[in-house]
Every structure is written in C-alpha cells, then in structure tokens.
Design a protein around this nucleic acid. Structure first.
Lengths: 150, 150
DNA sequence: CTATTCTCTAGTAAATCGCTAGGGAAATAG
DNA sequence: CTATTTCCCTAGCGATTTACTAGAGAATAG
C-alpha cells in the first residue's frame, strides 16, 4: 500500500504536467484545486524538487513547475522518491535490496521468488507510465467505460 | 510493501504444503525450521485457521495442517487475509474499496487509473500462484539461474 | 521596504507494526 | 483421574511511521 504522500505527490505533478510549459503554479493553488493539505504538500514538493523533478521560484510570480518534460517523468521514479522501493519485500527489491533476517537460503526462497515476479510486474507498469501519458488518459477518459467498484 | 506477518504466514504455509497430506506439524517446529518468532507465528496461524486455510489439533500429536489442497490456496488469498487488500490505494481496490477524501472526480483520476492497472497486474500474479506451484518451483530452483541482487 | 512565496526545522498525535506474556481449554498418555 | 502437551485467546507494549501543523527564515518582485 502506498502512502498519502505518494498520492499527493502524483496528483500535484499530474496537475503541473497539464500547465503551460515554464509557467509557475503556487503551492496554495495546487493544494486548493486538488484538495490537499497545503503545508504537507509543501514538504512533498520540496522533496521532489531536491530530487530534480521540480523547479521552484520564490517571491511574487513564484511557484513550482516541472524541471523536465512530462514524458520524462515516470510514476515509478516518483513513488520511489516519496515512498521507497516498489517491491513487496526488501529482499525482492532492485533499488532497495536488503536480506531477510530469517532467510536461510535466498536462492530457494519461494516467497522471494514470487515477490520478485510481483515487483517486476509493478515496475513494468510504473516505470513505463509517464506523467504525460497519464495526464492525457486521465482527462480523455470516458466515464461510461469504467463502472463503479464495489 | 507487505508486512512481516504476511511473509511469515506465506513461509509457514509453504512449509506445510510440503508436508505429507494430513500430517500435523507443531507451531514450534515451523518457527524453528523457518527461523520465525514462535508466539507471533501462533497468532498468524490462528488467523489463517479462522479463515479456513488451516486445520489444527490440540494436545499430543497435534499441530497444524492445510485445510485444503495446496493447489487451491493462492498467495493472493493469504496476503489479503493477513495484510488486507492488494491495491496500492483503497480507491483502486476491488476487495477493500474506499473513496479518497480528496478525490473530486474518480472517473477521471489519473492516479487511480494507473493504480488499478498495478492492482490488476499484482492480482493476476498473486491470485494465480498457488502454494503447490510455488513450493515446487522454490525447491526445484537452480541457484545459478538467478544472480544475486544489489 | 514590503508583500509574497518558497525553504527549512521542529514537533506531535494517532495509528500500525512486530512482537511478548501468560493463562485457559482441549486432547492424549498413562 | 492426573499430568503433559499443544493449540487458543486476550492483553499489552515499545518502536516506528504516518500525516500532518507551526513558525521562523530567505529570496524575489515591485
């Protein structure tokens, strides 16, 4: 399960991906339009800026904008920055590998093997989905195409 | 990220899947062989029993065994019991759906759309992988086939 | 200089995780 | 019947993480 943090970050970036190239958007405006807690969002955007996804400017006419084209930022990158590795377990992670305390033979561990498969499937989607694509799809969606869940 | 609980549960069940049909195994033995904390494992097995995955017997010659054939128990079922829904966000879940507080239009939410794809990919793997398969693969694995991660 | 807006550090309440403790109840052995 | 084994069940608890809020500081525009 991802955290609110990652969700907020993704939502904010998607919104910025739909702005005019080079235009700055205020944190306050993002927070309001997306209904996100303003101060918390600030922290998140700061983090994304430090990781090179956002460019910011202070003072009047300041705000945030993407630091690179929306088709060069993937969901996977963002989630890893905000929530850490994608893999269900550390022992199945490429980017955040850590051995299990209790594992006697990792090469044979059936749990790890399956979790690697899951990780790979997640990564295949998340590392290939860019902000640009997602923004386009999200907006162009036909409401009737997807029935409500239960 | 899954919890230790789910990992412990999966490991224990996989071990039981490799026992003779109908034979009982002690919690203490599972804990020792898999290097898991005994008391915590008890809780987990209890939960799995209540959900119909395990059968147990008390007293001498007691212990736990699978309540159904190993090819009828999937990773997905187990993880849902121990850790809850698979989906990255509640709004993308089939089994544990909950609306996002901040979502204005769910039908258009690009984040949700992508998370549904991720959920579906995870479910496709986890709901089709049985204990029987995983146990067979885990044991038959060729150590040289999978290089160490970093 | 002043208003604006991001920047940064702290703090914090609540929830969750990953256990441990300990006694109770059922089954079996003798 | 008694003792032993083993699961059953409830409680609790320390550490960590989550999801924020507060508030002062620094840059920028006008």
């Amino acid at each position: 399960m991802l955290t609110q943090k990652a969700k907020y970050g993704l939502k904010a970036l998607l919104m910025l991906a739909q702005q005019e190239q080079g235009e700055f958007t205020l944190v306050a405006e993002i927070a309001e339009r997306q209904k996100l807690p303003r101060k918390y969002l600030e922290l998140i955007l700061l983090e994304l800026r430090k990781q090179g996804f956002l460019h910011s400017q202070r003072g009047k006419h300041g705000g945030f904008r993407l630091a690179k084209p929306a088709d060069q930022i993937t969901f996977g990158q963002i989630i890893r920055v905000l929530d850490g590795p994608l893999a269900p377990f550390p022992c199945a992670s490429l980017t955040g590998y850590r051995k299990c305390e209790d594992c006697t033979d990792e090469q044979v561990c059936a749990v790890r093997k399956q979790m690697r498969r899951v990780r790979d499937a997640m990564a295949a989607i998340l590392d290939s989905t860019t902000l640009a694509e997602a923004a386009a799809q999200g907006v162009a969606a036909d409401p009737a195409a997807e029935p409500a869940l239960a």
